[in-house]
């Protein structure tokens, strides 16, 4: 793991001289383009009018290209508000998860105590949990804590549930930090908190970036929990909000597709801007095996 996550150095050290067979490459290109077809189809549809599509069919040359679907989705269908809610859920949940898991990782690595391994195993087991298992009790819990139908319910749940993966990744990351660094700081009179803040956190940064990129996508894309923990329209995140629009715009595919594309923009931006971190985040849990 350390190689992929900590050191994003150019890894293609040697090129194998002979490239792949042109036939093989052709097949790869075919599938790559096929994989993009849903995107292309969605983009084309979203710029066309409902009538144009309905009466003239998908293959006709569009008479008019329009931004109307996006404008309607954004305003009339309320996508702008849903999008804002998504950020209001995702960012705090992300911060809590990342902060708590760095603390946890530091604690688990820095101190030797009997429960360290069981606690670690507990987090790792949690990352595999089918989250639907938690559905009912989490609903009752949110209700009991009087945070049902508030963004807090989602923020707390997401940050807690994502702790499993975050602790798993960061704890392994922390393991690669030379222990002597902490020791010498301690001798210099720094408190544990200061060591954590000044030494451990900066060293964790590449791992944190990878993690944050991935976690942003995961939390942002959640659908189920928002259905169960929220009832007010004004609080709904984009995923649930969009699904909710199906009732109203059920046969208005251009509008629905335009809304879906808007919903994808934030995660796409994060992906393209932080692509390397995203990939590192995905692989970080797997390649140290």
């Amino acid at each position: 793991m350390s190689a992929t996550a900590s050191a994003p150095t150019p890894t293609r050290t040697r090129k194998i001289r002979r490239g792949p067979n042109p036939w093989v490459l052709g097949i790869v290109w075919f599938f790559a383009l096929l994989w993009l077809v849903p995107f292309a189809g969605a983009i084309i549809t979203s710029f066309r009018t409902f009538d144009d599509l309905n009466t003239r069919g998908f293959w006709s040359i569009p008479q008019t290209l329009t931004l109307h679907n996006f404008v309607r989705a954004w305003g009339e269908a309320g996508v702008s508000r849903y999008l804002l809610n998504s950020f209001e859920i995702t960012i705090p949940a992300l911060l809590i998860a990342v902060m708590f898991s760095s603390m946890c990782a530091y604690g688990l690595v820095r101190f030797r105590f009997r429960l360290a391994t069981p606690i670690y195993v507990m987090f790792v087991a949690g990352l595999m949990l089918p989250f639907q298992v938690l559905l009912l009790p989490v609903f009752f819990l949110a209700n009991k804590l009087h945070i049902y139908d508030t963004l807090w319910a989602l923020i707390f749940f997401h940050s807690a549930f994502q702790l499993g993966f975050c602790v798993f990744v960061l704890r392994n990351f922390m393991k690669t930090v030379p222990f002597s660094l902490f020791e010498s700081a301690l001798i210099d009179g720094a408190s544990e908190w200061m060591i954590f803040q000044r030494i451990a956190l900066p060293l964790l940064l590449p791992g944190l970036a990878a993690l944050a990129t991935l976690e942003f996508t995961w939390i942002f894309n959640d659908y189920l929990w928002a259905i169960v923990l929220l009832q007010s329209d004004r609080l709904k995140p984009i995923t649930t909000g969009l699904a909710n629009l199906r009732g109203q715009y059920i046969s208005d595919w251009p509008l629905m597709v335009a809304g879906s594309l808007i919903a994808t923009v934030p995660t796409l931006i994060v992906f393209f801007a932080l692509q390397r971190y995203f990939i590192d985040g995905l692989t970080v849990g797997a390649t140290k095996g």
């Binding site: 609903f139 009752f140 209700n143 009991k144 009087h146 049902y148 139908d149 259905i227 169960v228 009832q231 007010s232 329209d233 004004r234 699904a243 909710n244 629009l245 199906r246 009732g247 109203q248």
Partner: peptide
Amino acid sequence: NTVDHETFQNTSIRTYLASD
């Protein structure tokens, strides 16, 4: 609040009524 009628009758109304 308007909720898509299928979601409303399949999921939402039960959570509403079970909540405080």
